[in-house]
């Protein structure tokens, strides 16, 4: 058994044992944002595209799930799938528009589209506007498992988390992932080899949006509540921060980054109040300056260095 399989099994064991030590709803929140950051990493880390509007996918899926389950009597699995489909469709449209521009302009267009969605949600009655969408029922998964039980809900989120990471791993190692890597590494060369670069980017954007939608749907389901905050640009910024803190282009980096940011928010919110953003800002600054590759990137580099030394010594 190699070290990678061992780490994966250890991770799954930790997920199974976690609710015995950590408040399940905190774990649910952590995992939702970990999925979101991992989905975002598919864009920034693996494709090299900085989207600054990813909250639109997170929030849109939350509203779709919330509205469907509250008013149309959808079951949770339908709500989640519909949320992912809606976010993916929105991702396809936003991607197709934004992909015409590169770098900062790409980021600005994604921001503009997400602001458009934000104001649409604010102006529409059925989103509940500033009050948010309250009273989303958690329902029964497949008509069998009652999700009102926090542990059952945690189980669903944990399974989705594992599946999402597995999907991302498959995507980046697939034939499509190989093309994405080539595009990230040298776009003009990929173009000269006959690849319609824009199409691959739009597909990556769509997949990333759909997975972000899974995260947003799960969060709305867990909290029985969806608000405009989940569409807000500050969340789009936060997910960039999570990815960079943890380490871009690694599978576990965004997970570590999301855990770090959310835990910091949770533990400090009632102690330092307004100073929270200052502290997070300082931490971010420190990490950018001291750890270029994020927590996970630095750690794996150190470990590789140690292993190299050990080999040289023996």
């Amino acid at each position: 058994m190699n070290s990678r399989t061992l780490l994966t099994l250890a991770g799954i064991a930790a997920l199974a044992l976690a609710p015995a030590f950590v408040y399940p709803m905190l774990m649910v929140k952590l995992l939702c944002f970990a999925i979101f950051a991992s989905a975002f990493n598919l864009m920034l880390g693996y494709t090299g595209l900085l989207s600054f509007g990813h909250a639109m996918f997170f929030g849109t899926a939350g509203y779709i799930l919330g509205l469907g389950m509250k008013h149309l009597g959808w079951s949770p699995e339908i709500g989640l799938i519909a949320g992912m489909a809606g976010a993916g469709l929105l991702g396809f449209i936003a991607g197709a528009i934004a992909i015409r521009r590169e770098g900062i302009y790409f980021a600005m267009i994604t921001l503009a589209i997400s602001q458009l969605i934000y104001f649409l949600a604010m102006q529409t009655d059925w989103t509940g506007r500033d009050d948010g969408l309250h009273g989303i029922p958690r329902g029964r998964l497949f008509g069998l498992i009652d999700l009102e039980n926090d542990l059952a809900l945690y189980g669903l989120v944990a399974v989705c988390f594992v599946l999402a990471l597995a999907a991302i791993h498959r995507i980046v190692t697939s034939p499509f992932g190989q093309v994405l890597t080539a595009i990230r590494e040298n776009e003009p060369r990929a173009l000269s080899l006959g690849y319609d670069v824009a199409r691959y980017k739009v597909l990556a954007f769509t997949l990333s949006a759909a997975l972000s939608g899974l995260a947003g749907g799960l969060k709305a389901l867990a909290l029985s509540y969806e608000s405009l905050n989940d569409l807000h640009w500050s969340l789009s910024g936060e997910v960039v921060m999570m990815c960079i803190l943890g380490g871009l282009g690694t599978l576990s980096g965004p997970v570590a980054g999301a855990f770090f940011v959310i835990l910091l928010q949770n533990f400090l919110a009632d102690k330092v109040g307004e100073w929270l953003s200052v502290i997070i800002g300082l931490v971010f600054l420190f990490c950018i300056l001291a750890m270029r590759k994020g927590f996970v990137g630095e750690l794996s580099q150190r470990l590789a260095g140690l292993r190299g030394k050990a080999r040289a010594a023996s």
Partner: peptide
């Protein structure tokens, strides 16, 4: 113009892939 982070074999393979292997198959 190479793909710096890919191996030499993968560099050539990316070109072959466009002609005779799936390129959109993310699954």
């Amino acid at each position: 113009a190479t793909f710096p982070d890919l191996t030499v074999l993968e560099n050539v393979r990316v070109a072959l892939q466009r002609r005779s292997a799936p390129t959109y198959a993310f699954w």
